[in-house]
């Protein structure tokens, strides 16, 4: 070098004037701007309060108590939502059914998400033959109509599991079967999303930097790539809750889902088709609750998508 700097100049240290802002705060700011998502969130909280808070006033026994002499009564002061075809109080059943429906939605999504992340992460990160095999299986599963899978599995496994006690309530064992079935038939989309994320993120320079420093594959997958894939996973899981509630409603409507006397919003619709005109309250109240839940979850998902989008890193 012709002229090397003889002494190292002292650098003036850069400081930032802006107050520290975590990623969570930034996401919350963006989320707040999304009005439908806020409405969705509020409605969802109200629904959960309805399903949980209702138990303080009405017992499960009351919800399952039937008196055929009171069957098919319209809404009244005693039975605000009316009674069903064997005389049970619909208001009480929507409360207890809501708990089950929401719980099925959440737990099925946990199963779905775990499976989807596992398959997607392995396929995306390792690539090659592993990827080919896993993705062909995923596609094969996707090619079978989900409702068909649901019916076959529900018919085959349903009703074989004894009742269980959990959180002070007694459930029909079919609840667990339904959760597993919904989880096992819905992970494919998530697996594909996660795989796509891993495929693009593993070529990202911060992953290369981690590899250049000797970080293990395990740490790269779980500490570098997965946290950066969280946005589409959260969005997909949120929408998955709505789908799981709907799936439960389908198969319960067909009589293959959660077995009575345990109520769900879905199996309350079972048989309601016989009374479409004569007793509309039979399908109206559980139907409107399912609709509200699914709609507000979808709004919430939209808001989360915008808020968590890693491309909108600005404030």
């Amino acid at each position: 070098m012709e002229t090397t700097a003889s002494q190292i100049p002292i650098l003036t240290l850069d400081d930032l004037e802006t107050p520290p802002l975590s990623l969570g705060q930034l996401a919350w700011r963006r989320f707040k701007r999304h009005k439908p998502a806020i409405i969705g969130l509020v409605v969802l909280v109200l629904l959960v309060m309805y399903a949980l808070g209702g138990t303080l006033f009405i017992s499960e026994k009351y919800a399952n108590f039937n008196d055929t002499s009171l069957r098919l009564q319209g809404p009244s002061a005693v039975h605000p939502f009316g009674t069903d075809s064997i005389g049970r109080d619909i208001l009480a059943r929507t409360i207890y059914g809501g708990q089950i429906s929401l719980m099925i939605g959440l737990t099925a999504v946990i199963v779905e998400t775990l499976l989807g992340i596992l398959v997607g992460a392995i396929a995306g990160y390792y690539g090659g033959v592993v990827d080919s095999v896993l993705m062909r299986i995923t596609e094969a599963m996707l090619n079978i109509p989900e409702i068909f899978l649901l019916i076959v599995m529900a018919k085959y496994f349903g009703g074989k599991i004894p009742e269980v006690d959990l959180l002070g309530r007694t459930f029909s064992g079919s609840v667990i079967v339904i959760v597993l079935i919904i989880g096992l038939t819905s992970w494919m989309y998530l697996a594909r999303i996660v795989r796509a994320q891993f495929l693009s993120l593993k070529e990202n320079e911060f992953v290369l930097a981690a590899r250049a420093t000797g970080t293990s594959n395990f740490e790269i997958i779980f500490r570098h790539i997965l946290p950066n894939s969280i946005a589409p996973i959260v969005v997909s899981a949120t929408l998955g809750v709505a789908n799981a509630i709907l799936s439960e409603a389908y198969i319960s409507f067909l009589g293959l889902g959660v077995q009575p006397p345990t109520a769900t919003w879905g199996n309350m619709l079972d048989g309601a088709n016989n009374y479409l005109d004569t007793a509309p309250w039979l399908w109206f109240f559980p139907g409107i609750l399912i609709l509200l839940t699914v709609l507000s979850i979808n709004f919430l998902g939209d808001g989360l998508r915008d808020a968590l989008d890693p491309r909108s890193r600005t404030v």
Binding site: L23, N204, E205, F206, L208, A209, A210, A212, T213, G214, H224, P227, N228, P310, R313
Partner: peptide, 19 residues
Amino acid sequence: IRRIAQMIFQDPYASLNPR
């Protein structure tokens, strides 16, 4: 080798884990 040989990347946005 990973300790004695290191790398600096092109894209200052992509090369740091945003989380």
